[in-house]
Amino acid sequence: MLEARNISVRYGPCDVLREVSLSLSEGRMVALLGPNGAGKTTLLKALNGTLPAAEGSVVLDGRPLAELSRREAARRVAVVAQENETKFPVTVVDFVLSGRFAHGGAFGWERAEDVAVAERALAECDLEKYGSRLMNQLSGGERQRVVLARALATEAKILLLDEPTANLDLAHQAMIFRLVRGRCDAEGFAAVVITHDLNLAAEFADELILLHRGGLFAAGTAEEVLSEANIAEVFGVRSLRDANPATGKVRITPIF
């Protein structure tokens, strides 16, 4: 569905991303890992065209991303960015409806169908009663869920999520990862998720990509990528690796 071929991204003279490749196919969930400044967000921005790749190319459904109009791209790829603030007071439901822009007509009034999609997305993110609340009056965690609800409301099959669980409590962290996993398994979605939680990544993702200083350090399954040696090298932290007794998945415990 979405493929990055050897892309490099530059801010001014310095490379922030060097020759990174990534291939995302239907039903797959890819976790993007790495320390702060490793280039994770940059890669995500390059994947939806916010940052143009200086070298290499991004291909979406067989066509170079650069050739697609913004509307076409937005109907296929939805983004949950890290934090966004708005000075103008917007209600939660209007915010989620803004995700329907790429489906709208010239003068842009929402149809009943758009409202139904938005309400379903709100319900899935445990936000049924929040519709008339104002965005700038929500807590960080609530806002994050609204932003995810809007991404779902776009009906794009590819989700690019930048730390979607950073401000969330345990229950909502699990809820969001299960939701995205469920969409990948049942409805042919595909997702790239940036996270700092190695265990969540090991638990839910099909493939893990570990970035280090703008380059690809390791990629593969949790067993392959999350070795104690890799974690020591990239994060500079000693850790203990075993298996989660409940699920059998890789479990990393840092040793502080």
Partner: peptide, 24 residues
Amino acid sequence: LTSQARALNLMMIGERDAFDHGVE
């Protein structure tokens, strides 16, 4: 200007955000 109003609604939320959602 009214024809651009919905795009403006998105741009009020944030320019990068509007770009992500299909606004040129």
